[in-house]
Amino acid sequence: MSASTPQTVLMASGARRSRTSHALVQNVGLVLVIGLLAACIIGYCVLFVVTQHRFPGGFELTSTLDNTMPLAFAALAQTLVVLTRGIDLSVGGVIDLTNAVAAQTLTGGPVATTLWTLAILLIGAACGLVNGVLVAVGRLQPILVTLATLSIYQGIAIRVLPQPGGAIPPGFTAVLANPNWPTSLLYIPVIGGLWAIFRRTRLGVAVFAIGNDAMAASSHGISVKRTVILAYTLGGLASACAGLFLAANATAGDATTGDTYTLTSIVAAVLGGVSLFGGRGSGLGALFGAFVTVMVVNILFFAHIDPLYQTFYEGLFLLAAVVSANMIGRAVRGRR
């Protein structure tokens, strides 16, 4: 579909284009989302000062970050899959399931909590593995597989935790989503660093390669099946992180709390410059996209928009962002 296969980009960047302009073209989505986030933060601060007559402080920072972390992980999960030219509708189901398991099991001391946390991460990875195997080995369309597994994971989640409840230990919350101190400021650079490493691993390169052209990647010796399975598995792991952060933030569990994340993770990834046609985008962009999504909700709140109209403005914002990103992207790429 897109005219910028790796070959054409390579040719275009040959003699005529400088390194910086090449980097800009490659990361135009990331640059745009950072600009968007900056605009959102400025808009938020202005509105906050106007309505509250003071600057946003530590509390606002902490609560915004804590609210964003689950979506950031969900968006990361979505990005890993979308990069392989797939889509993961089961993100919400995996969050439901891991959140429910967390509520049922995270009740003991630090050792038990740590072990169960690892087990929950494995559960998420296993869910992703099932998706990946069905897509790669079962040769089924990703959207259909994850539609079916969404239903399955949601069902298991409700079986595990029929009523919302559970008591997440304060220690667990203090580590992941400390209400008094922005712990998330530590996690964001870690995610960024991990993404930078992932991007340079064999797997990371393979994910981008099959997203651009699976046949070409396969003829260059990349195992498409293995890559797809690993991408979905890592996606499941990231969704499990989202479920855990959500549990820490709410200090309880709810087997339907993740449902909305299926669609908002797509929104965040798209805002972050991840192309739904695969092969283009970055986890960092998705992370910023998640922040933009949360900031827009905050802005609507402080702009005294009737909450009933909230999704109306979110929808308009998403369309405006995608259309203008398309136009800017085309303009930047068009300067050959």
């Binding site: 069905l134 079962g138 040769r139 089924l140 369309q141 259909l144 597989v145 539609l147 079916a148 597994t149 969404l150 239903s151 399955i152 949601q154 069902g155 298991i156 989640a157 409700i158 079986r159 029929p162 699976a214 046949m215 396969s218 498409v224 099946k225």
Partner: peptide, 27 residues
């Protein structure tokens, strides 16, 4: 119960897909 329906619903869709929704093996 609700959860069982949700699970079986998903499993049946998967089973039907595996029965006749598979792609040609291209890789």
């Amino acid at each position: 119960p609700d959860y069982g329906r949700s699970i079986i619903y998903g499993l049946v869709i998967l089973a039907l897909l595996l029965l006749y929704g598979r792609e040609e093996d291209s890789a």
